[in-house]
């Protein structure tokens, strides 16, 4: 029963779900757009969960990391447009830049805010996205409020054909891989000391300190990891898919709201939760926008309050509790 791979069984449903999404999107006519949206939500939730789910801290400014990631890719493509011979290398540099920028921002915010307790941390993050947006606009950074449009540069660098395939297909597949990778990292964290430390500090920070856990260190690690993934999501799902960036769009709090809905609905701190949350949210948003346009956030705000009051562990949290110590249980954490 017990073998060396068994700790990794919980990845199986995750990979199966991603694979199924991919197959449906590629083979059922007209579904790729929906699938791409779902993949974005999966990756967003998976990345956000590493922080919110594992530490129990809320970052209301989370979208800022997607935003700076988008800028990272934009800066690489516009800045290196004169070296088209680098080709896809520029995209790779863009991802590196996205990660660096998200890491820097999260380190700066984390160094201040993560020394504070829950409520104060949340307060400190409330303005991060707006603050960064206003810094870009106010100080005229990177073209300020007029943003950056770089479709032409992308075409030049990759050639028209490849560029259009990147925008319509490869960007989404990259998002799929980012989501899957975030899930793998989540599981690795869960199985190592950091995961135990995060669980402990999420439950009782003072007791965790007394047990020898350097809580600030682990919180910052989770924060930076989560932020870097968000940066790559921004770089792929926004910058590559739609090659332009406008400050009000990429720092829009709406995406933080969606990330919260996805993680809480699916199950904060579980491996499978963000994926389940993303599918429920994405599919119902899709149908709501057809049948009851304009009310999806209203409904989900109600749903989230209901979830928090009645089953704060989320859908997967409940399933996990019910299946603990059963055969299915070893696949669900």
């Amino acid at each position: 029963m017990k073998n060396r791979l068994s700790p990794y069984y919980p990845l199986l449903p995750v990979f199966v779900a991603y694979f199924a999404l991919f197959l449906v999107g590629r083979n059922v006519e007209g579904t790729w757009q929906l699938v791409a949206t779902l993949l974005f939500y999966c990756a967003l939730g998976q990345a956000f969960n590493i922080f919110l789910g594992m530490t129990g801290y809320v970052d209301f400014g989370y979208v800022a990391f997607l935003g700076v990631g988008t800028y990272g890719m934009a800066i690489a493509i516009t800045g290196l447009a004169n070296f088209p011979q680098l080709g896809l290398g520029i995209v790779a540099i863009g991802f590196v830049l996205a990660i660096i920028m998200a890491t820097l921002l999260s380190t700066a915010v984390g160094a201040v805010a993560l020394r504070l307790r829950g409520a104060y941390f949340a307060i400190a993050t409330i303005g991060v996205n707006e603050g960064f947006r206003f810094l870009i606009e106010g100080a005229n950074l990177w073209n300020g409020s007029s943003g950056m449009i770089f479709t032409a540069q992308l075409n030049e660098i990759l050639g028209r054909d490849l560029a259009s395939r990147v925008m319509t297909l490869w960007a989404d597949i990259l998002v799929l891989f980012i989501g899957a990778l975030a899930a793998v990292v989540t599981l690795l964290y869960m199985k190592s000391k950091i995961g135990y430390a995060l669980t402990a500090l999420r439950e009782d920070e003072d007791a965790a300190k007394v047990m020898g856990i350097n809580v600030t260190k682990y919180k910052i690690t989770a924060f930076i990891t989560s932020a870097s993934f968000a940066g790559t999501v921004g770089a792929a799902a926004w910058a590559l898919k739609t090659p332009y960036v406008f400050p009000p769009e990429v720092f829009e709090i709406h995406y933080t709201i969606e990330a919260i809905i996805i993680v809480m609905l699916g199950g904060a701190g579980t491996l499978l939760g963000p994926l389940v949350g993303a599918l429920i949210y994405g599919v119902s948003k899709y149908y709501l926008s057809i049948f009851l346009p304009g009310v999806q956030l209203f409904i989900f705000a109600l749903v989230i309050i209901f979830v928090i009051v009645t089953f704060p562990e989320g859908v997967v949290g409940v399933i996990k509790r019910k299946t603990r110590n059963t055969a299915i249980g070893q696949y669900i954490i």
Partner: peptide
């Protein structure tokens, strides 16, 4: 002050680990 959501085994392991 147990780490309530973790199992007893995990709680005790936290002690050993840190």
């Amino acid at each position: 002050r147990p780490f309530a959501s973790a199992t007893v085994r995990e709680n005790v392991a936290v002690g050993a680990m840190f």
